[in-house]
Amino acid sequence: MLNNIGLVIRQLDLQPYERVALAMHSFTDKRHAASDDEIWLVQHPQVFTNGQAGNNAPALQTSSIPMIKTDRGGKLTFHGPGQQIIYILLDLRRRRLGVRDLVTLLESMIIATLANFSISAHARANAPGVYVGADKICSIGLRIYKGCSLHGLALNVAMDLSPFLLISPCGYAGLRMTQVKDLSPGTGIDDVIPVLLAKCRQQLETTASEIQDWDPLQYGV
């Protein structure tokens, strides 16, 4: 158990992608060896984000949804209200976690969460994320900086999935996206969050404070 490592959980609610990205980088730049790890829960207004390995999709030229280039791993994906994003801000050296270890941990956390809603999900060896059958329900994209993780995962819960049809999600042509509410009718974000946090604490083997508010001024944004 890593009970000496604090874990602060912050609820950001609905926030613009760029504002949160700037705050996340500010937090990581300023953290030190004794800094608590943090988990940020957030939803974003509709936005496409393109990772370091991503290419533009021609269909986006006619879309009113903005596209933002990011420094996370992975390719092009979509975010919108009803998708629960978790930014994972961990000191990986302190936890003795490699990148593959972290990806596996996050996949296991999502699979265990979905099982709570009677959804049978799985990971794939060469395609990070979580799948239900052939469909993808959770995307993972990370960056490691100064031995710490940034970005995280996006779980489709109860959102408008149609913008995914404009792209090849995560670079896979024809990949279909699914979500919790279509597999467990009546389930929403408020149902998923407590289960997700319980599985997160379990996987990280750490103590955690209660959910705290997020003040963007704390990060200079």
Rank of each mutant, 00 (worst) to 15 (best):
T77D: 03
Q212R: 09
L60Y: 10
L105F: 07
A198S: 15
L60K: 02
P185H: 02
I211D: 08
T77V: 06
S108R: 14
T187P: 02
K199L: 13
A158V: 14
S149C: 15
Q52N: 07
P185C: 02
N116L: 05
A125W: 10
G51Y: 13
I189R: 00
I9G: 02
L7G: 09
M1Y: 15
V192Q: 02
A198F: 15
S35T: 10
C200D: 05
T104E: 06
H79N: 01
I137H: 02
S209D: 15
T70R: 01
P58T: 14
M177H: 08
L12S: 15
I65G: 03
L217I: 10
N50K: 15
E38C: 04
Y172E: 12
L14F: 14
W40S: 00
N3M: 12
I119G: 04
I167V: 14
R19W: 09
T178D: 04
A121Y: 07
D135C: 13
L217V: 06
A173M: 08
C138W: 12
G171Y: 04
L106P: 01
G171N: 00
C148N: 01
L114V: 10
R94F: 09
I167N: 03
Q84C: 13
S35V: 11
C148W: 05
A154V: 11
V99G: 13
R95W: 12
D190Q: 14
I140R: 03
G186R: 09
L89T: 08
I211M: 05
T207C: 07
L161N: 09
N55K: 13
T70P: 05
G129S: 12
Y87C: 00
A154I: 06
D215G: 11
G133Y: 03
H122D: 11
W40H: 05
Q203P: 03
L76R: 04
A173Q: 13
V195S: 03
G186D: 08
P128S: 07
E38W: 00
V8I: 15
L165Y: 11
N4I: 04
Q212M: 06
A134N: 11
S118V: 11
